[in-house]
Nucleic acid binder design. Structure first.
Lengths: 141, 141
DNA sequence: TTTACTGCAAAGGGTTTGCAACATG
DNA sequence: CATGTTGCAAACCCTTTGCAGTAAA
């Protein structure tokens, strides 16, 4: 895991520093995409500007993905290429929390095929899809 | 259409002013969710701050929906309740353009049922879903 | 030992807001 | 005519950036 990140960074002339390792660990510890404030709270030794900069670089080399919600802050998660764990998100429209969810393989396949067909008829090359479930989490329902 | 918006506004002690009518017309004229700069360009007589304020109120009363992408600006579209036109989005990861797309009714039904089941097993109440197709538009491919 | 990285503080930039004049119902 | 709305400019707040010192390879 950390080795994979190191490898990705190296191929871009970047170093796997202490701070970056800490950020990656914070992402790994969570069960859903996290905001920068959450990361800073999780690990008080990190400087805000460095976290912003590092997440940006980690995204650039393909180690993390940036998620946008209606929330104030952007959210980050480990890239699926690193986790081998294709997933979607449960977004609570009441408290804003975001957690991971997996669909059945069959449903994923059905959706994927249908979207490719749909893209073709719109003359649009479909590279992937983003599917969020919006509703109320257990705490808010 | 405009009557529906007026009705929604009225029930919230809001007025359907000239500026708001213009904003709604701009949304209606587009084939996908638009940014505030696009609205301002479309109708030069609008003041930026009023457009922000009005879109916020229109969203509050359920007349428009705010869309977030990786783009710099938020995007707005008429609410599905007004258009009777459930749809998703084609998002070009190259130029950032966003346009509407409709899936077959059957696929929508399949997805909806599967997501509700999935939500149940996560103890999450699913109110709706958001499905974007990410890839390259005809111009960028 | 070279060059990338860090942390601070200051700048950017999309969005929000205070206020006095104005328009709507 | 009472009250919601407008437009300007200033404030806000998340995010980015300049810079001098530090640490990775």
């Amino acid at each position: 895991m950390h080795d994979d990140v190191a490898e990705l960074l190296r191929s871009g002339d970047h170093r796997y520093t202490n701070g970056r390792r800490r950020v990656v660990s914070a992402l790994q510890a969570s069960d859903g995409p996290v905001t920068i404030p959450q990361i800073l709270e999780l690990d008080g030794s990190l400087a805000q500007s460095s976290v912003y900069r590092n997440l940006s670089i980690l995204e650039e080399v393909g180690a993390v993905s940036r998620i946008v919600t209606h929330d104030d802050h952007a959210r980050y998660e480990l890239a699926e290429a690193l986790t081998d764990h294709h997933h979607h998100h449960l977004i609570c429209s009441s408290c804003g929390s975001v957690s991971d969810v997996e669909l059945t393989e069959q449903l994923e396949r059905t959706i994927d095929e249908a979207l490719h067909r749909t893209g073709q008829s719109y003359n649009f090359r479909v590279d992937g899809h983003r599917l969020d479930l919006v509703g109320a989490c257990a705490d808010c329902a």
